[in-house]
Simulated assay, not measured.
Amino acid sequence: MVAPTRSGRRPGRSGTKESILSVARTLFADKGFDKTSVRAIAAEVGVDAALVHHYFGTKRQLFVAAIALPVDPTKILDTISAARKEDLGRSLVSSVLRVWESDNGEALVAAFRSMIATGDTSLLSTFLMQVVLRDIAARVDEPAGSAPERVNLVASQMSGLLLTRHVLKLEPIASMPADRVVESIAPTLQRYLTGPLPGY
């Protein structure tokens, strides 16, 4: 007697995780984080969305895996989200520095260097604007409509700090104690986030 065909999600098979990552990378690059759904990724691969969640957890965790970051930004984002509005600048720079200068720091810098070198800047900008800075933007949109400019200014400052301290390794910034970097950069970030902006 022939066993009946089972319906439901397609079981995991050799190469499925890699296929999910490949499709996710493409869709995130083309459509961005917000407009890419786990269901769409699963459909493109030919598996059930539950299998994607089984392998990778949340959509944000899938995105981190797709761009091969060596650290999940969840903890740093939770720390920043918990900060008072007037402390966002300090929380942001101190939290990011902790990640850059952790055991995973060199791998993280290498991942960003690779994305820039290969011209894969769409994923990098998606990560910065739709994952790291999205929740902050919602908190600092005063006056209304100023949030995109505010978080772009923050991104320019933080990417410049990453480049100067960890890629070009310009002195004295490269060897400056982290707490001194925080004291120097945090007021500027806070001004970008909550201070007056020309034209508003």
Rank of each mutant, 00 (worst) to 15 (best):
E86N: 12
T79C: 15
V154S: 01
V64C: 13
L133W: 03
A138S: 10
L92V: 08
V131R: 05
I67A: 05
E142S: 13
A147S: 03
K85I: 15
V71F: 07
L62K: 05
V151N: 00
S91E: 11
L92P: 09
V96T: 12
L108T: 02
I136F: 01
T74R: 15
E142L: 12
D120Y: 08
D87Q: 04
R150T: 09
A66G: 03
G105I: 02
V93Q: 05
R113S: 14
E86R: 06
D135I: 06
S102V: 06
S95T: 02
V64A: 09
T118V: 05
S114N: 10
R150I: 02
R150L: 07
R113C: 13
M129D: 12
G119T: 02
L92A: 05
S95C: 06
Q130V: 02
V64Y: 10
F112H: 01
V131H: 03
Q61C: 09
S102L: 15
A147R: 08
S125G: 13
P148W: 11
S122E: 07
S95A: 07
E86V: 12
E142N: 10
I76C: 08
S81T: 10
V71D: 15
L108I: 02
I136Y: 01
W100T: 11
A111F: 07
S95P: 01
T58N: 10
V109H: 12
V132A: 08
R150A: 01
E101V: 10
V64E: 02
V131M: 02
P143A: 06
R134T: 10
I76E: 06
V71Q: 11
S114D: 05
M129T: 11
L77S: 06
Q61P: 03
S91C: 15
L123M: 10
Q61L: 01
S146N: 02
A110N: 03
G145N: 04
V64D: 01
G119A: 06
L108R: 08
A107T: 07
L108G: 04
N152E: 15
S159W: 08
P148E: 05
R98P: 07
A137L: 04
